[in-house]
């Protein structure tokens, strides 16, 4: 089968239950929004191939159940992730506070170089807002992570968020590649340029107990 892309990036959406992870994904993959979404049980993923600086980048985006109880199961699907979207709900203070817990969760387990981004979703619901944009930005600065407020419903900044994360991963990857391949010896294939899932989990995942 002919390969229809140059890069395959595996991305992950995490955050509290009901912050809108599935809605963000649905907006990005189908450019649609459904007010009566169902909660995610277990895990699922969607695919969208984007054009990034002349390269076809296939994004495989994993959507997880938010409730903490299911984390031991859902983390099994984290392996090989290159980028993580941390999502909170601007109308839910608690979900914002929990971003710190989610970051700690990643830090405890993830390799240091996984690309991260914080999304403050539901910014269309201004009347119900509990978390100001400034607090979001402040948190991002604190963790040195990119941040953007989004609205899956109004299709605000969703495209931007995924393109930004993908571009950062691509840049980091190409930088690494250059480092390992001295100038002049370029053009070799790299492990991410393949259809196969990565067999070798990063170190942070090897510590995840599976059953």
């Amino acid at each position: 089968m002919a390969k229809t892309y140059d890069y395959l990036f595996k991305l992950l959406l995490i955050g509290d239950s009901g912050v809108g992870k599935t809605s963000i994904l649905f907006r990005f993959s189908e450019d649609a929004f459904n007010i009566s979404f169902i909660s995610t049980i277990g895990i699922d993923f969607k695919i969208r191939t984007i054009d990034l600086d002349g390269k076809k980048v296939k994004l495989q985006i994993w959507d997880t159940a938010g409730q903490e109880r299911f984390r031991t199961i859902t983390t099994a699907y984290y392996r090989g992730s290159m980028g993580i979207m941390l999502v909170y709900d601007v109308t839910n203070e608690k979900s914002f506070e929990n971003i710190k817990n989610w970051i700690r969760n990643i830090e405890e387990n993830a390799s240091a170089d996984v690309e991260k981004m914080i999304l403050g979703n539901k910014c269309d619901l201004d009347s119900k807002r509990q978390v100001s944009k400034e607090r979001g930005e402040q948190l991002a600065v604190e963790y040195q992570i990119k941040f953007v407020e989004t609205s899956a419903k109004d299709s605000l900044n969703v495209e931007y968020a995924f393109y930004t994360l993908a571009r950062d991963i691509k840049a980091k990857m190409e930088k690494k590649q250059e480092a390992s391949n001295p100038p002049g010896a370029r053009g070799g294939t790299h492990q991410l340029k393949s259809n196969d899932q990565q067999r070798k989990p990063p170190s942070w995942l090897s510590r995840c107990s599976i059953l």
Partner: peptide, 17 residues
Amino acid sequence: RERKSLVEKDVNRTDRS
């Protein structure tokens, strides 16, 4: 409060179609 919030979120997205 947490339990109540979870319940509210979920009933609003349970078989609404």
